[in-house]
Design a protein around this nucleic acid. Structure first.
Lengths: 349, 349
DNA sequence: CTGTTAGCGCATTCAG
DNA sequence: CTGAATGCGCTAACAG
């Protein structure tokens, strides 16, 4: 407990400190801003004492008001439930610290309305920039921010009609690598399982890459859309997968399921377990993009995204823009890493 | 895009709006604060027009500076990697919205230093209250906040020497229920696996409850400390568990592992898988507190915490304090729910 | 019903 | 080297 902190209610202000130190506010301000060497040793000591005694902390709000910059940046996340988001977040946080920013984290919980509300809120807090990983915000919503001089960098997905910096996985390469692996392991038929993808660029790119790659490789396969938010549709999709598996079995063809991300993979896995029991992995091969914590436990092959780096890079881009860099929008596509586990190994199925 | 938003750089201020609407700032302020009915229809319309035209957004910072309250509350999380945290967070967010707060989320990534830094940062941003789920912050650190008039509510764990509102799981009851279940299923020996628990109250309580309950029930058992941050120590602990399993096997006694939380359970599960192969669950029964997403996939029995409610309740408590409620510190212990899955069923092992 | 005035806590000229 | 004065955007008295 700070000595005799009698001022139990109001926090000390710069004025209090100045009075306590027997000087003017300016000197305190100078001290705070590290304009050291410009202050006599004597004065500096008095200031330090006063600050300690009063347990003074400069008010960032007031500071921001004056300077016009509050070191706040917004981070809009579509879904913290997805480990991907948390991992990216860690990179963002680390980088923020390095640059002296404070991230204002907004979790939209997959609700488009919330996304819009948060974006507005962020703008009222005058964040200096925004990192967006959103589900459905429209170009216009972000555009008003951007045209207000607030830099925006997109993570994982781009947004139609909006040209800004963006950083994410090199989906095309990742999908191709995955399929090549599956092909090498001798699977005859691939099923790509993905959430409704028309409005989410990364899903769209993955799906396209899937079709392109199997086409190029001459592997047979199809896309199945799995809507995790609609039980009825989901059930149908899963049933469809079951039939497909059955057919291929009969014809003695080896089939592999390729989930577009971890949530999809989990849903599929749960279904397969329900259908085939605890040993479901002996019946069907499953792999996915995103290396979630249970992947190792399930022995599931995945493509690991460089999530941490993605977060860092996003902040770097943002920082440059905040500092006034003016250049054409950049797109940073980082490579994924194929993590082969038993689920897709030739001998296993 | 807002009409002729020429002011591409500076955001419009209340003064701009006043000028545009041909009135004074006060009226604008009144309009913003919903003091409607106090404004003539004509004036109100002009204000609305001006606001729309200028795409004006009140500056929360300035607002907070004046009012002395910025509607910001801090949320300090020890570890977002733990699904528990994310779930609590969702409750917090929902409640914040209901009350009109904006949560400033700080993720300490299990680093005590970061926790302290964040707490300081929060105080410089003049948050109106703080919700803390921390690993190692000391009583003093929080005390300076609390004595500065900033309400604090603790989540999941209490802190020695600090008396504040706290909300979490009823650990004692949860552990007892779990052990009763294990006992009913005929396990002869229980091993409680927990991270170093001396400094984390919830772990301590769980461990005590474990010993008390097996004592009362006359079940044999022991506690094993598993330090997830120290590979060497962890390996030893896991080896210890292995021996224990071996011994009990020889004597034909049925043994069950009870992990104190999800991260511990995952670590144990991975080890068992490595040791006994994919069918490890046929060799050893494992259950834990925290119902993570992979628990269902692994068919693992758990105690599900009312995470969402915990988050909500925390905000409610905080809100009351912020509104000035003065009363003795409260402790809100919510009941867990035993989720029985195959991992601990009598016939399974 | 409406506008004027005076700060909130701080950083920044500009004079000593 | 130091301090007094000014204003950031906004709200809250206080007058009209």
């Amino acid at each position: 407990m700070p000595k005799d902190n009698f001022s139990t209610e109001r926090r000390a202000t710069i004025t209090d400190v100045a009075r306590e130190a027997g000087t003017g506010k300016t000197s305190i301000s100078r001290y705070l801003n590290g304009e050291t060497g410009v202050l006599s040793t004597d004065l500096r000591e008095r200031i330090e004492e006063a600050i300690a005694k009063l347990d003074y902390r400069p008010n960032q709000m007031a500071r921001g008001l004056k300077r016009g910059r509050n070191r706040l940046i917004g981070m809009l996340l579509a879904d913290l439930t997805n480990p991907y988001s948390v991992e990216v977040l860690q990179g963002v946080e680390a980088a923020c610290h390095a640059f002296g920013y404070m991230p204002l984290i907004c979790h939209a919980a997959n609700e488009v309305d919330l996304e819009r509300r948060y974006l507005q809120l962020l703008s009222t807090y005058r964040v200096e920039g925004v990192i967006v990983n959103a589900l459905g915000v429209k170009e216009e919503t972000l555009e008003t921010l951007a045209s207000g001089g607030v830099p925006v960098v997109l993570v994982d997905r781009s947004i139609d009609g909006l040209v800004t910096d963006m950083v994410g996985l090199d989906n095309t390469a990742a999908v191709a690598a995955a399929i090549r692996h599956l092909d090498e392991q001798g699977f005859d038929e691939l099923v790509f399982v993905v959430q409704p993808f028309t409005h989410v660029s990364s899903r769209r790119v993955r799906e396209t890459a899937f079709r392109d790659t199997i086409g190029a490789l001459g592997v047979s396969g199809a896309t199945v859309v799995l809507d995790l938010d609609d039980d009825k549709l989901a059930a149908e999709a899963l049933a469809g997968i079951d039939t497909r598996i059955g057919e291929n079995r009969q014809r003695n063809r080896r089939i592999a399921l390729f989930a577009a991300n971890a949530p999809v993979a989990l849903r599929v896995a749960l279904h397969m377990k329900e259908r085939h029991g605890a040993a479901w992995q002996r019946h069907v091969a499953l792999m996915c993009i995103d290396d979630s914590e249970w992947a190792e436990l399930a022995g599931m092959t995945t493509v690991r995204q460089p999530t941490y780096t993605i977060g860092e890079r996003a902040v770097e881009f943002l920082h440059e823009r905040i500092e006034g860099a003016v250049m054409a929008p950049r797109e940073c596509l980082l490579p994924g890493e194929l993590v082969v586990r038993t689920s897709t190994l030739a001998g296993n199925i």
